[in-house]
Design a protein around this nucleic acid. Structure first.
Lengths: 193, 193
DNA sequence: AGCATGTGTTTTACTCGTAAAGCATCTCCG
DNA sequence: CGGAGATGCTTTACGAGTAAAACACATGCT
């Protein structure tokens, strides 16, 4: 297992000590340092969750920052790209509420983004003929071309960033995250959140 | 497997297919669905990175939402709690710029947060006697009590959320994230970003 | 038909974070 | 000394997201 299993400071009942040292020696992970500080201040608390949640948050922040680079060159923010991407990958028109669900953002945010993207000629809207409350948004040719042009770049860039981890570890990580995410999403739905 | 793309190491090394099927059966992970859509539209692209980055982002979003619940009961936002936590875990005063570095936010944001937290009586400021440009921020007793009161709740809550994964997997996940994060942070520093 | 109620979308008012400019103060060096 | 430049923090202007209200339309019930 992960080497220094029994945590320093011992005494903690349900002993599931993760944290430091797992074969890899010198590591600069800032979260580990933070968790270490907490443990010296509150040796009795189980800091385990921090090592996952703190890292997920921090990774998300760093990855986004890295991610944004190729998108910005195309003048797109990530939420905008997500919206265009949703249209591209589903292959058909979507209503604003579908877009909101698909991109995990609020309806109001979608309204604004669609407005902007329309002005830039990347998407078009049309009203539904039967139910005139609903709108349908679709990619213009320019929008489709933009997405198709950026996506490979974007993936290559992401791939390079992730190459910090070898292929095996990437696979494990994707699997674990998928499992966690799957159950989290299940829970959320169950709790009607 | 995912690798329509010949990736270094020959597809996914040891035959550890990512995406679907890894022992766990029915999974509702939305990212998997999205990736599937992309693959049917662009079968030639290596969608591997999405399965990590997309999931990290989504997990971060869901976890934050879940996380925020216990904090909000105490009337704190996460960035505010991070600031207080930084003061608590280091055990001593910090200057605004140290707080900014410690909480990964901009100096301006720290200024505002400190102002608010001061008004609520959770932190205090004093000017440095030698260098009158710098300020020192420290927790009040009320602030320290608040952090110490919330933290166990917070950790218990996080722990419950993460219990979707068994202890072993949590350990693996923490390790992998730590490794990725460590190298990402190294890279960022190297690239002076 | 006529009205109450529900649904899809947009608008409004507000919060929060940031980048860039603005102060105040220190340090270095002639 | 005394100014040039660096440093630490704050202020300002602004963009983006959200929740809640507003709007427009549909649907169902009597």
């Amino acid at each position: 297992m992960t080497g220094t299993q029994g945590r320093p400071g011992g005494g903690n009942g349900g002993g599931r000590g993760r944290s430091q040292a797992h074969g890899n020696g010198a590591r600069g992970d800032t979260v580990a340092a933070v968790v270490g500080q907490w443990r010296t201040v509150h040796p009795d608390l189980d800091t385990g969750p921090m090592e996952i949640i703190g890292r997920v948050n921090r990774c998300a922040a760093l990855l986004q920052q890295a991610e944004d680079a190729p998108l910005r060159r195309a003048g797109l923010s990530r939420p905008e790209f997500d919206l265009l991407g949703a249209l591209r990958r589903t292959g058909h028109e979507l209503t604003p509420s579908e877009l909101a669900r698909e991109t995990f953002s609020s309806g109001a945010a979608v309204t604004k983004r669609v407005k902007q993207l329309t002005e830039r000629g990347l998407v078009e809207r049309r009203g539904d003929t039967r139910d005139r409350r609903v709108a349908h948004v679709r990619l213009t040719d320019a929008g489709r071309d933009l997405v198709d042009g950026i996506l490979p770049e974007q993936l290559a860039y992401e791939s390079a960033v992730l190459s910090a981890l070898d292929a095996d570890r990437q696979g494990e990580l994707a699997d674990l995250l998928g499992e966690l995410l799957g159950r989290l999403e299940g829970h959320m739905r169950a709790l009607r959140v």
